[in-house]
Amino acid sequence: MAIFRYPNWRWPDLPGAMEDFERARRQMDRLLSVFSGGTETAASSGVFPPLIVTEDEDKIYVEAEIPGIKAEDLEISVVGRTLTLSGERKPEEAQEVNYHRRERKWGSFRKALTLPEDVNAEAVKAECKDGLLKLVLPKPEHVKPRKITINGQ
Protein backbone atom coordinates (compact mmCIF):
# COMPACT_ATOMS: atom_id res chain seq x y z
CA MET A 1 0.00 0.00 0.00
CA ALA A 2 1.34 3.39 -0.91
CA ILE A 3 1.32 5.91 1.89
CA PHE A 4 1.59 9.59 0.99
CA ARG A 5 2.63 12.23 3.44
CA TYR A 6 -0.02 14.90 3.10
CA PRO A 7 2.18 18.06 2.92
CA ASN A 8 4.09 16.69 -0.06
CA TRP A 9 0.98 15.96 -2.01
CA ARG A 10 0.19 18.45 -4.76
CA TRP A 11 -2.51 19.04 -7.30
CA PRO A 12 -1.28 17.50 -10.50
CA ASP A 13 -0.76 20.08 -13.27
CA LEU A 14 -2.34 22.84 -11.24
CA PRO A 15 0.47 24.86 -9.71
CA GLY A 16 -0.75 27.46 -7.27
CA ALA A 17 -4.21 25.94 -6.94
CA MET A 18 -3.92 25.59 -3.18
CA GLU A 19 -2.77 29.21 -2.88
CA ASP A 20 -5.83 30.29 -4.90
CA PHE A 21 -8.14 28.37 -2.59
CA GLU A 22 -6.39 29.87 0.40
CA ARG A 23 -6.80 33.40 -1.00
CA ALA A 24 -10.49 32.78 -1.73
CA ARG A 25 -11.00 31.45 1.77
CA ARG A 26 -9.39 34.54 3.29
CA GLN A 27 -11.57 36.85 1.24
CA MET A 28 -14.70 34.92 2.25
CA ASP A 29 -13.66 35.14 5.89
CA ARG A 30 -13.17 38.87 5.61
CA LEU A 31 -16.50 39.37 3.89
CA LEU A 32 -18.31 37.31 6.52
CA SER A 33 -16.65 39.15 9.38
CA VAL A 34 -17.75 42.48 7.88
CA PHE A 35 -21.35 41.24 7.49
CA SER A 36 -21.46 39.92 11.01
CA GLY A 37 -20.38 43.30 12.32
CA GLY A 38 -16.86 42.23 13.16
CA THR A 39 -13.97 44.57 13.64
CA GLU A 40 -12.07 46.01 10.73
CA THR A 41 -9.71 43.44 9.29
CA ALA A 42 -6.76 44.32 7.17
CA ALA A 43 -7.13 43.94 3.41
CA SER A 44 -4.29 41.48 3.22
CA SER A 45 -2.43 40.45 0.10
CA GLY A 46 -1.53 37.14 1.71
CA VAL A 47 2.12 37.52 0.84
CA PHE A 48 4.64 37.49 3.66
CA PRO A 49 5.58 39.78 5.38
CA PRO A 50 2.50 41.69 6.53
CA LEU A 51 2.98 45.44 6.09
CA ILE A 52 1.67 48.74 7.32
CA VAL A 53 2.31 51.65 4.95
CA THR A 54 1.70 55.21 6.06
CA GLU A 55 2.72 58.59 4.65
CA ASP A 56 2.98 62.19 5.65
CA GLU A 57 4.09 65.22 3.65
CA ASP A 58 7.79 64.38 3.60
CA LYS A 59 8.08 60.65 4.02
CA ILE A 60 6.58 57.23 3.43
CA TYR A 61 6.80 54.77 6.32
CA VAL A 62 6.73 51.00 5.89
CA GLU A 63 6.55 48.63 8.84
CA ALA A 64 6.68 44.84 8.64
CA GLU A 65 6.47 41.95 11.09
CA ILE A 66 9.37 39.62 10.38
CA PRO A 67 9.93 37.46 13.48
CA GLY A 68 12.91 35.17 13.29
CA ILE A 69 14.52 36.77 10.26
CA LYS A 70 18.07 37.96 10.63
CA ALA A 71 19.03 41.24 9.01
CA GLU A 72 21.47 39.39 6.72
CA ASP A 73 18.69 37.12 5.43
CA LEU A 74 16.62 40.10 4.34
CA GLU A 75 17.02 42.09 1.14
CA ILE A 76 15.40 45.45 0.56
CA SER A 77 15.56 47.34 -2.70
CA VAL A 78 13.92 50.41 -4.19
CA VAL A 79 13.80 50.75 -7.96
CA GLY A 80 11.75 53.68 -9.15
CA ARG A 81 8.51 53.44 -7.25
CA THR A 82 8.81 49.75 -6.51
CA LEU A 83 9.89 48.60 -3.09
CA THR A 84 10.87 44.95 -2.90
CA LEU A 85 11.37 42.92 0.25
CA SER A 86 12.76 39.45 -0.14
CA GLY A 87 14.47 36.90 2.00
CA GLU A 88 14.20 33.67 3.76
CA ARG A 89 12.95 32.50 7.10
CA LYS A 90 15.03 29.54 8.13
CA PRO A 91 13.88 26.74 10.39
CA GLU A 92 15.61 26.23 13.68
CA GLU A 93 18.11 23.42 13.44
CA ALA A 94 17.07 20.82 15.93
CA GLN A 95 18.15 17.23 15.78
CA GLU A 96 16.72 14.13 17.34
CA VAL A 97 13.69 15.82 18.77
CA ASN A 98 10.00 15.08 18.79
CA TYR A 99 7.77 17.89 17.65
CA HIS A 100 4.65 18.39 19.75
CA ARG A 101 3.55 21.46 17.85
CA ARG A 102 4.76 23.03 14.65
CA GLU A 103 2.83 26.18 13.86
CA ARG A 104 5.62 28.54 12.83
CA LYS A 105 6.17 28.67 9.10
CA TRP A 106 9.37 29.04 7.19
CA GLY A 107 10.42 29.44 3.60
CA SER A 108 11.45 32.15 1.21
CA PHE A 109 9.44 35.22 0.40
CA ARG A 110 9.36 38.10 -2.04
CA LYS A 111 6.98 41.01 -1.83
CA ALA A 112 6.92 43.98 -4.18
CA LEU A 113 4.98 47.12 -3.46
CA THR A 114 4.28 50.13 -5.65
CA LEU A 115 4.75 53.24 -3.60
CA PRO A 116 2.21 56.04 -3.94
CA GLU A 117 4.90 58.60 -4.65
CA ASP A 118 8.51 58.83 -5.83
CA VAL A 119 11.08 58.38 -3.10
CA ASN A 120 14.69 59.31 -2.71
CA ALA A 121 16.19 55.82 -2.88
CA GLU A 122 19.58 57.05 -1.65
CA ALA A 123 18.16 58.27 1.64
CA VAL A 124 16.02 55.26 2.62
CA LYS A 125 16.56 54.21 6.22
CA ALA A 126 15.88 50.70 7.51
CA GLU A 127 15.82 49.50 11.08
CA CYS A 128 15.25 45.98 12.31
CA LYS A 129 14.46 45.42 15.98
CA ASP A 130 12.56 42.76 17.97
CA GLY A 131 11.29 41.18 14.75
CA LEU A 132 9.90 44.44 13.39
CA LEU A 133 11.27 46.10 10.29
CA LYS A 134 10.79 49.83 9.98
CA LEU A 135 11.58 51.69 6.77
CA VAL A 136 11.58 55.44 6.31
CA LEU A 137 11.50 56.54 2.67
CA PRO A 138 11.93 60.29 2.22
CA LYS A 139 10.17 61.93 -0.68
CA PRO A 140 12.29 64.03 -3.03
CA GLU A 141 11.80 67.81 -3.08
CA HIS A 142 9.68 67.89 -6.24
CA VAL A 143 6.86 65.75 -4.85
CA LYS A 144 6.57 67.51 -1.52
CA PRO A 145 3.57 69.81 -1.32
CA ARG A 146 4.64 73.40 -1.63
CA LYS A 147 3.01 76.22 0.22
CA ILE A 148 2.30 79.18 -1.99
CA THR A 149 2.26 82.51 -0.33
CA ILE A 150 -0.09 85.04 -1.80
CA ASN A 151 1.30 88.50 -2.02
CA GLY A 152 -1.14 91.14 -1.01
CA GLN A 153 -0.87 94.50 -2.66
Binding site: V97, H100, E103, K105
Partner: peptide, 23 residues
Amino acid sequence: PAVDIYESENALTLLADMPGVPI
Protein backbone atom coordinates in the same frame (compact mmCIF):
# COMPACT_ATOMS: atom_id res chain seq x y z
CA PRO B 1 1.48 33.59 19.12
CA ALA B 2 2.35 30.74 16.74
CA VAL B 3 4.58 28.24 18.54
CA ASP B 4 6.84 25.30 17.91
CA ILE B 5 7.29 22.89 20.78
CA TYR B 6 9.75 20.08 20.64
CA GLU B 7 11.01 17.58 23.11
CA SER B 8 14.44 16.09 23.36
CA GLU B 9 15.80 13.64 25.85
CA ASN B 10 16.64 16.31 28.39
CA ALA B 11 14.40 19.26 27.72
CA LEU B 12 11.25 20.69 26.27
CA THR B 13 11.84 23.68 23.99
CA LEU B 14 9.23 26.24 23.04
CA LEU B 15 9.61 28.83 20.29
CA ALA B 16 7.01 31.57 19.95
CA ASP B 17 6.72 34.30 17.30
CA MET B 18 6.18 37.55 19.13
CA PRO B 19 7.30 40.38 16.86
CA GLY B 20 7.58 43.75 18.56
CA VAL B 21 8.05 42.46 22.10
CA PRO B 22 11.21 43.84 23.71
CA ILE B 23 13.22 41.65 26.08
